[in-house]
Amino acid sequence: MFSFFIISLGVFAQEGKIEMADELRSSGKIYVVVAVMTLLFVSFIVYLFTIDKRLKKIEK
């Protein structure tokens, strides 16, 4: 019972510091991902709007 407690304590100690992308953020490179995803999404939306416009022309 006691040894189980020790083991579980060790597990908790390991989980104490949860690894997040702190390093990625501190080196500032997360903004590269933000830029790429923004570009992708903006192009997708612009594409949708142009399809919409072309359709409107054909409808007339």
Partner: peptide, 18 residues
């Protein structure tokens, strides 16, 4: 809305979970 979530979704703090 989606543009905001692309940017905010990557940058806004999230809870640290295992």
């Amino acid at each position: 809305l989606v543009l905001y979530t692309v940017i905010g979704g990557l940058l806004i703090q999230v809870p640290e979970l295992p």
